[in-house]
Each structure stands twice: as C-alpha cells, then as structure tokens.
Amino acid sequence: MTSVTTRPRRRLAYTLDVKGSPYIYIAPFFLLFGALGLFPLLYTAYVSMTDWNLLETTRQWVGFENYAELLTDDYFWNALFNTVSIWLLSTIPQLLVALVVAHMLNRSLRARTFFRMGVLLPNITSIVAVTIIFAQLFGRDFGMVNWAIQLVGLDPIDWQAGTLSSHIAISMIVIWRWTGYNALIYLAAMQAVPDHLYEAATIDGAGQWTQFWKITIPMLRPTIIFTAVVSTIGGFQIIAEPLLFQSGTGNPTGGSDRQFQTVGLYLYEQGFGLYEFGYASAIAWTLCLIIVVMALVNFSITRRIKSG
C-alpha cells in the first residue's frame, strides 16, 4: 500500500523535474535579458515620452511630442540619409567581396589556415586605432590617399569636407573591418555544400564561374540572408567610425555641416552632448523601428535568391 501513496508524489516530482527544470536552466538568460535588455528597452520608451534634460530638474510627460518633433527635424533626416548612404556604400561591396574571398579560401591553398585566420585580423583590431589611422590616410594635406591621387595627376580631395567623399572614406573603414568576418561565415557555409554537386557539375561540363553562380550561391541562401540582415542592423547603428573620423575635436556633429553624422551619432549628440534624454530616447526608438523595417525588407529581397 505504501507504493500507492508515494507513487503520485514521486510522479509529481518527476513531472516537475521534466517540465520545470528546463525553465530554471534557461532562467539566467531571461533574467539577464530582462534586467539589461527588456527593462532599458521599456524604460527608454517611457523616457521618450517625456521632456527630460539632464541639466534641468523638471521632467514632463509630453506623449508623442518628441516623435512629432523628430519627423520635422532636418538634422534627423540628414542623419538618416547619411546612415543609408554609408550603409549602402559599405554593405554591398563588403558582401560581394566577402563572397569572392570565401570562394578563394575554399580552394586548396597553401597555408590555408593562415589565410583563413588572416582575413579575420582586421575585425579584431581596435576600432579606435583603425579609424584614427584611416582618418590619417584620408587626411587633406598629408594623407596617403591624396598623395596617391596626386601621383596619378588628379587634384587632392578634402575627404572630410565633402558629403560623398566622407561617406566613401567611412565606408572604407567598415569594409576593411567586416569583409573578412563575412567571408569566414560564407566559407563555413560553403564547406557544408556537398562535394558531389560540384563533381556532378564538373562532369556535366560546368566551369568554375557557372558552378559558383548555380551551386554555391543558391546553397548559401540562408547564410546570405543572415549576413544581409546582420549587416543591416550593424550598418544602421554605425556610430564609432563617424565619431572618430572627426577625432580630436570631441564633438559628435559629424563634420562642419553634419555631412557624415549618422542617426546613431545624432542620438549620441542629443543624449550625451546636449543631455536631451527624452529626445534622444525618441531617436533610439525610431532608429529601432527603422532597423526592423529595413531588416524585413532585406529579408524579403534576399530570400528571392533561387534556392538550389
């Protein structure tokens, strides 16, 4: 009879263990995410509905006024244009070059591991150092790029002063840092493509290039979607490069005419330069929504790549 009384209790403990313990295992992540992710997210939403300057003691509820102001703010639209421009100029060449680099690394090379690790080096160097060096390379009077341009007989360019020229210079930093990273992701995906597909194609007489377009790219579709979405998220948040490109002056205006101020930098200027926390929070949320929309658009475009 004892078994009759103990069995349900044991069964309960068993059920709890099976059904309950997984939640305990994953709880640390959700607790951390709640404290460091969700709470700031919601709190920022609340702050964005207030008129709060850190230098003033008052804090007023203003509803959606900050957002309304943002939509008529020339500097916000300017920053959004700059962000999109720098993102396009950096992401498209970056992913294309990464594909080619991955394709080359996928062949049987001498010292393959060396080259594979090598492409990741730019990514692990300090962004501060990289940007400062690039700012020197693109210097007006003694920059190496201008020196090279003059060798060819062209006029030197004031890279920081122009809109397009500054965007190109900043995109170069992004491309230099992230191409290798994306190449490694593509490489990993390429290695998962079964060899027999290539063998069959070779037997059918398909050349290298055809194989690349007809087999490799379609097989890489999920990875390309992934990198495109991640690059979108990263590209829209870009802040360190434009901030440091104007280095030394300590001001986040992104050039004398805000010609390379991105949305992230504008957020930083409003929040931590002018201490307008309410307005900066509204920018943060708007930026978040823009990223979500752009990521979805990107997802829907890249998924059209024909799968094998």
């Binding site: 460091l36 700031p40 997210l41 920022t44 939403a45 998220i233 943060a284 930026l287």
Partner: peptide, 14 residues
Amino acid sequence: MSSRMLRVLAGTAV
C-alpha cells in the same frame, strides 16, 4: 531600440 543603445544603457547601469 538598437542593441548598441541597449549596451550603452546596460553599461551605464553597471
């Protein structure tokens, strides 16, 4: 909200 902003806020909190 961007994850960078999250990080900034998290960092500030820490």
